[in-house]
Amino acid sequence: MDTLIHHISAWDRLPLQVRQWHVAPDAEPEVGPGAQPDGGPVPQSNPGLDTRPNAQPNAGSGAHRPAGRHHPPPPILCLPGLVRTGADFETLAAEIGHDRRVVTLDYPGRGDSGRSRDVNRYAPEACLRDVMDVCAALHVHRAVIIGTSFGGLLAMGLAAARPALVHAVVLNDIGPDIAGDGADFVRDFVGHDPALPSLEAGAALLRASLPPMSLHTDAAWRRMAELTYRAGPDGLWHPNWDTAIAQLLNRPPPDLWPIFGALAHLPVLLVRGAVSNILLPGTVSRMQAVHPDMEVVSLPGIGHAPILTEPPALAAIQNFLARNP
């Protein structure tokens, strides 16, 4: 699988790490230099784009343009959860990126993107601006957005703020109402640094504390730990995010139903963990009332949030992409 790592200076010069998978040489988007998806100028921060690959392409990549296609299909923009990183989508990208660009990023304060002394730099509004910067820098427009949890809320925000960026949306276990019990767990998890002695201890902690997930082997849990913790200079393993992000979760939640309404005229697929403590059945019913054409796939025995390579979820996403070329 081809992986390109880009480094972009955000609007305030904070460094952002961006991943891009399955880029076929003849499948670059047809957007003129210096143009945003809405036709405006590229922000001054974006000349900081470094397009040199950090990883060499692997032989045998499935990247290609289907026969008879005159224009590349819309790219896929994957937006991770609140303190997750773009690396979460690596396995999914290998399954769905054969004829499309797949782009994702680490938000500020997460993964390999920069840290800030101001916790407000990690707020949803700032992250939304970062996503728009990345789309402008990489000429992403009319994207199919796959948003997990917090990333799904950003997808709604993009549809409201920059409708030309959004072609279709996959929401992963998120809606306009967030259940209180799930929100309390997330706040505690995000704000706690367990300072673990080893990666194996991290895998054990995740296995014991996370909601039910479709991770069935020791190797799968170890990989989840690798994506969640990183070794510090003290030799211990710490969260791969700034734990100050938890402070944002103490604020009263806004009314998110108006921005969900921005998806009313777009194709939408909702993937839900059937035992999710974040997205409750009543919220799904109300979402379907607002958007009757929204497809819903429920994964039995799975909590927040699906990893999207579960067979029913992956099949639904592949079919959704095929119907929205």
Rank of each mutant, 00 (worst) to 15 (best):
G111I: 05
G111D: 04
G111Y: 00
G111C: 11
S113G: 09
S113C: 15
G114C: 11
G114V: 01
G114T: 09
R115N: 12
R117P: 03
R117K: 09
R117H: 12
R117N: 10
D118F: 14
D118T: 11
D118N: 07
V119K: 06
N120P: 02
N120E: 15
R121P: 01
Y122W: 06
Y122T: 02
A123D: 07
P124R: 08
P124Y: 02
P124S: 07
P124I: 10
P124G: 06
E125S: 01
A126W: 01
A126K: 10
L128Y: 06
L128M: 08
R129L: 08
R129G: 03
R129Y: 01
R129H: 11
R129W: 03
D130V: 08
D130T: 06
D130L: 11
V131Q: 12
M132C: 14
M132L: 07
D133H: 14
V134D: 08
C135G: 10
C135D: 09
C135L: 13
A137N: 13
A137E: 06
L138C: 06
H139V: 00
H139Y: 05
H139E: 14
H139N: 11
V140I: 13
V140W: 05
V140G: 03
H141A: 14
R142Q: 13
A143V: 15
A143D: 12
A143K: 15
A143S: 13
I145V: 15
I145M: 08
I145K: 04
I145E: 13
I146S: 04
I146A: 06
I146Y: 03
G147E: 08
T148R: 00
T148M: 03
S149C: 10
S149E: 09
F150H: 10
F150R: 14
G151M: 10
G151W: 00
G151Y: 04
G152K: 09
L154S: 06
A155E: 05
A155G: 13
M156S: 06
G157H: 07
G157F: 03
G157I: 03
G157K: 01
L158H: 06
A159Q: 08
A159C: 09
A159G: 11
A160S: 14
A160M: 09
R162A: 11
P163E: 15
P163Y: 12
P163S: 11
A164S: 09
A164I: 02
L165M: 14
V166N: 11
V166D: 07
H167A: 10
V169D: 02
V169H: 00
V170F: 02
L171V: 15
D173C: 08
D173I: 12
D173L: 01
D173P: 05
I174R: 01
G175V: 07
P176W: 02
D177P: 05
I178E: 02
G180K: 15
G182Y: 03
A183W: 13
A183G: 07
A183M: 14
D184E: 14
F185K: 07
F185A: 08
F185R: 12
V186P: 05
V186Y: 01
R187P: 12
D188I: 05
F189Q: 03
F189N: 06
F189A: 03
